[in-house]
Amino acid sequence: MSLALGTLGLTAVVLSVFVYRQSGTPGLRAAGKDALNTFKALAIRLPCALLAASFLVHFVPVDAVSGVLGRDTGMRGIAIAAAAGGFLPGGPMVTFPIAVVLQQSGAGWPQLVALISGWSIFALNRLLTYEAPIMGWRFAILRNLSCLLLPVLAGFGAEFVLVFIEAE
């Protein structure tokens, strides 16, 4: 985890230098204020979302999840996860706690990669509330069609990387 924190810290320092050179102290202050505002907005929702997910783990049938989305389910699990991801409602605050629950219930990483990719790419409620109204249906269909196989490709890619890592 310290590697993650180190990367984040370093990124923040580098970006701070850029912001300072572009707009000085007011820029840095605005960035801090923006971060604080987002934090305030999350302060109640995020603990509740995580708590809800944590409750969920206790009565989700773990065997059923690992049967459908486990590492051994291969191509079928990846395809199911990719499709299911597209129907996950809401933003990252809902999706990632669900992904944590599924991970704890025995879902495989390639399947989770497919799920998160499916949600990122298709997100049905985003399509209906933002993409189609702003860009029109023609663009929305063109984009979703172009992206149709990407979540499955991402799941396959993850499977490949994992096999490679495990072989080391």
Binding site: M1, A4, L5, L8, G9, T11, A12, L15, S16, F18, V19, Q22, S23, G27, L28, A30, A31, G32, K33, D34, A35, L36, T38, F39, L42, L46
Partner: peptide, 20 residues
């Protein structure tokens, strides 16, 4: 408790990127 430091770092990075 485990994610708080990273979340804080992530939010700060988000704020900085929005400035740039």
């Amino acid at each position: 408790l485990a994610i708080l430091p990273q979340l804080a770092g992530g939010l700060l990075i988000g704020g900085l990127i929005k400035q740039l």
